[in-house]
Design a protein around this nucleic acid. Structure first.
Length: 492
RNA sequence: GGCGCCGUACCCAAGUGGUAAGGGAGCAGUCUGCAAAACUGCGAUGCAGCGGUUCGAACCCGCUCGGCGCCUCCA
């Protein structure tokens, strides 16, 4: 049974969906005015894994993740680049899909856009005005926080405290400094939709209320996003949604921690961020490998805590994965006629139990990975004793299916040391060039030829010659392992 | 000023009341022509510090120190 930490209650709680065996979740996506950074990747990945694990646990999952495609920053970017807002959002939505695709993040069930829900947004705003929870000022509509007694429930703040700390210059027309815009009147040239209050566009928070209600209903199971969205975004969503419907909104609020650089929050405003594509650009490894390394790195810390990004951390993730893929390579070779069976079954059962209990415990991915490492060790030992071809396949399949929950271990080959020309290491975002292509420095046939040469040399006890060949291949990133039977295996 | 998070070995990282998982790096050994991989062994008498509660604390409480976040757009 999955237990999940709920920001709303501050406790780890058993996940009990509203409709049995069904999970409905909404996650705040991105505002599409720029490329995604590694922090966006973490958030997307955490909820991708939550979704995968819910499915693995037998739930039918409806997963909604939005795109904010109308916003001040988009307007600004469009002006800067001299293109339409549509052009900006289309470009970065596509980039989002490309980047997340490389990380193996599955598309959500629905990926609605704010601009496609203007009618829903206007209707929801009207409901709030009609209920006296919002007021109109010269074409703008504001939510009145003081009319909503539960305001601050999620972020555990009191209005008085907020007021004391407010650093923003307060718009005089607002009744309370914390009142926020549901609808903003548009200036000429800005995106605008007709409404009762004149031409305008939605405020930031209202779109998520409108879209989640549209796609999941007025009350649903899980609402997620990054820690920084707790206040004010999610607090405001709750106020709007509960205020309008009079019902409970989302039952479980799940928030992921930040990616940091040298213990500092990574963010656009601080300028210390790495975009996802930048990381792929700089990588010396093939795309699918880099994607898996990144995924493994991002899952190596519990989702709730901070995670420090560094080359060192990436290398460690690489080493960890390398051990698995080395094993998979051996599992792909034909086995002996060993009588193994029970040992493997026991190892698999042990792993399954440990894996499930780790994931059930608030998505403890580091512990889940540890359970797979234990299996790796067990299988290695069985291999030393002798494992049949069938047993090898069973083991590989087990890694594949547990791994699928985390999005790991799905590659057939781990051409880990294929040398890829590192593309210009410090490309500016704007000059980003498309995807890196992978070109092995040596073809398989060439390698096999060299290997045959070396085996001949070894047969003649010409170890010097054999070592020269091994060194030659090594300099090209190809590692040779001699097997007891005199033949060799190689890997890139 | 208000709210909150974090501090576990050389590094990463679980553990949230029952006597310190796992990985990486390192060292030693087995195997090997040598390597590589794998396997085996070694490695925190202690969980930032100091008090307290308890039969028992890394885990609970209090204080202190250090790092960070939110309260403004932010995953």
């Amino acid at each position: 049974m999955l237990k999940i930490y709920n920001t709303l209650t501050g406790k780890k709680e058993p996940f009990e969906p509203i409709v049995p065996n069904t999970a409905r979740m909404y996650v705040c996506g991105v505002t599409v005015y720029d490329y995604c950074h590694i922090g966006h990747a973490r958030s997307a990945l955490v909820f991708d894994v939550l979704r995968r694990y819910l499915e693995y646990s037998g739930y039918a999952v409806t997963f909604v993740k939005n795109f904010t495609d109308v916003d001040d920053k988009i307007i600004k970017r469009a002006l800067e680049q001299g293109v339409s807002c549509d052009a900006v959002t289309a470009k970065y939505i596509q980039a989002y899909h490309e980047d997340m695709g490389k990380l193996g993040i599955r598309a959500a069930t629905e990926e609605p856009k704010a601009t496609e829900h203007i009618t829903d947004i206007i209707q929801l705003t009207e409901r709030l005005v009609a209920k006296g929870l919002a007021y109109v000022v010269a074409g703008d509509v504001y939510f009145e926080v003081s009319k909503y007694p539960e305001y601050g429930r999620l972020s555990k703040r009191r209005l008085e405290d907020l007021q004391a700390g407010a650093r923003v210059e307060v718009d005089e027309r607002k009744h309370h400094a914390m009142d926020f815009a549901l609808w903003k009147s548009s200036k000429p040239g800005e995106p605008a939709w007709e409404s009762l209050w004149g031409p305008g566009r939605p405020g930031w928070h209202i779109e998520c209320s409108a879209m989640s209600i549209r796609h999941l209903g007025e009350t649903f199971d899980i609402h997620g996003g990054g820690m920084d969205l707790i206040f004010p975004h999610h607090e405001n969503e709750i106020a709007q949604s509960c205020g309008a419907t009079g019902k409970e909104f989302a039952r479980y609020w799940v928030h992921n921690g930040f990616v940091q650089i040298n213990k500092e929050k990574m963010s656009k405003s601080l300028g210390n961020f790495f975009t996802i594509r930048e990381i792929f650009e700089k990588s010396e490894w093939p795309e699918d490998v880099t994607g898996e390394i990144l995924r493994c790195f991002l899952l190596s810390t519990h989702y709730h805590g901070p995670l420090d990004f560094s080359d060192q951390a990436l290398k460690e993730a690489k080493s960890a994965l390398n051990g698995f893929y080395d094993l998979f390579g051996r599992l792909g070779e034909p086995g002996g006629k060993a009588i193994v069976g029970q040992g493997l079954d026991q190892a698999l059962d042990r792993c399954r139990a440990a894996f499930m209990s780790a994931m059930d415990d608030d998505l403890n991915t580091p512990m889940a990975i540890a359970s797979l490492q234990a299996l790796r060790s067990d299988v290695n030992k069985l291999l030393a004793v002798g494992l049949s071809t069938e047993g090898r396949q069973t083991a590989r399949q087990a890694f594949r299916s547990f791994g699928a929950v985390l999005g790991l271990f799905q590659l057939d080959r781990w051409d880990f040391n294929v040398r890829v020309e590192p593309k210009a290491a410090h490309l500016a975002l704007a000059t980003f060039a498309p995807t890196v292509t992978v070109e092995p420095v040596m073809t398989d046939v060439q390698i096999e030829t060299k290997l045959a040469e070396r085996i001949d040399a070894k047969k003649c006890k010409d170890f010097k010659r054999a070592d020269v060949i091994r060194e030659e291949l090594k300099s090209l990133g190809i590692t040779i392992e001699d097997k007891p039977d005199g033949t060799s295996r190689w890997k890139r």
